[in-house]
C-alpha cells in the first residue's frame, strides 16, 4: 500500500469530523436501519451506540494494523471475519453480564456485523490509514453515531412513553404520543435532527467565511492604506 493518500489531519480534527461534519448518520446517512429500530428508549440507544463504537474501534485498529498483510483481492471477506468476530464478542459479553440490555436489543447486536458504517469506514478509511488516525476515526464515527442515537431515543422515549431511561418523567396525566415509538416517529425525529445538524454546519461555515472575509478585508484595507 502506498502512503500517499495518508490522512494528514490531526487526531482531534479526524475525531471531530465524525461527530458533526461527517457524522455517519446525519451526513453520510449510512447504517440507518438499526439506529431507527432500537431507539425507542434511551438505554437501548446508549447500549447500541457503545456496542457499535466498540466493534468499530477494534475492527479499525485491527484492520489498520494488519493493512499490509491483507491482500487486496480477499480484503472484503477478511474484513467481515474480523468484524463478525468482534461483534460476537460483544454479543457474548452482553449476554453474560448485561442480560437485560441484551434481551431488549434482541437481534440488533448480531446485526452489527452487516452495519454499513463499520464496513464503510473500514473499507474507505482504516484499510489505508495509520493506526492512530484509525482510532480517531473510529472514536469520532462511533461517538457520532452514539450521540445521535441518544438524542433520537431520548425524544422518542420522552414523548412516546413519558419516561427517560425507564424513569417516569412526564406527569402521570400526560398521554404518551404513541406515534413517536412507532417507526414513522423515528423517521420524523431523525429528519428533524438532520435539519438541525445542517443548520449547525451552515452557521459554523458562515462564521468561518465571515472570519476569512474580515481577514482579507483587513488585508485589503492595509494594502489600500
Amino acid at each position: 500500500m502506498s502512503e500517499e493518500g495518508k490522512d494528514t489531519r490531526s487526531f482531534w480534527q479526524v475525531f471531530k469530523a465524525g461527530l458533526v461534519f461527517e457524522n455517519p448518520l446525519l451526513v453520510l446517512m449510512i447504517g440507518l436501519c438499526s439506529s431507527l429500530a432500537v431507539t425507542s428508549n434511551v438505554s437501548n440507544g446508549i447500549g447500541m451506540g457503545l456496542a457499535m463504537t466498540f466493534v468499530l474501534l477494534f475492527s479499525e485498529i485491527f484492520i489498520s494494523a494488519f493493512r499490509k498483510l491483507i491482500p487486496n483481492g480477499a480484503r472484503l471477506p477478511i474484513f467481515i471475519i474480523i468484524i463478525a468476530a468482534f461483534t460476537t464478542i460483544v454479543d457474548l459479553v452482553m449476554k453474560a453480564y448485561f442480560p437485560d440490555l441484551s434481551k431488549s436489543m434482541g437481534v440488533f447486536i448480531p446485526l452489527i456485523v452487516v452495519n454499513c458504517i463499520i464496513m464503510g469506514r473500514v473499507e474507505a478509511y482504516s484499510s489505508k490509514q495509520r493506526v492512530v488516525s484509525s482510532i480517531a476515526d473510529a472514536l469520532g464515527m462511533g461517538l457520532g453515531y452514539t450521540w445521535v442515537l441518544i438524542v433520537i431515543s431520548a425524544v422518542r422515549e420522552l414523548l412516546g412513553n413519558g419516561t427517560f431511561a425507564g424513569i417516569q418523567v412526564m406527569p402521570v396525566s400526560y398521554t404518551p404520543i404513541l406515534f413517536f415509538i412507532l417507526p414513522p416517529g423515528g423517521f420524523l425525529v431523525f429528519g428533524l435532527l438532520i435539519s438541525a445538524n445542517n443548520a449547525i454546519k451552515r452557521s459554523i461555515n458562515k462564521r468561518e467565511t465571515l472570519a476569512a472575509k474580515q481577514v482579507s478585508d483587513q488585508q485589503k484595507a492595509k494594502e489600500n492604506a
Binding site: 498483510l69 491483507i70 491482500p71 483481492g73 480477499a74 471477506p77 477478511i78 471475519i81 474480523i82 463478525a84 468476530a85 460476537t88 464478542i89 457474548l92 459479553v93 449476554k95 453474560a96 453480564y97
Partner: peptide, 27 residues
C-alpha cells in the same frame, strides 16, 4: 488468497473460542 483468508478465520475462531469459554458459565 484462500490460505490468507483461512489464516484470518482460524485466528478469529480461536479468539472466539476463548471468549466463549470465559462467558459461557456466566451466561
Amino acid at each position: 488468497l484462500g490460505l490468507i483468508l483461512a489464516a484470518f478465520a482460524v485466528v478469529a475462531c480461536a479468539s472466539l473460542a476463548v471468549v466463549y469459554q470465559v462467558t459461557e458459565p456466566a451466561i
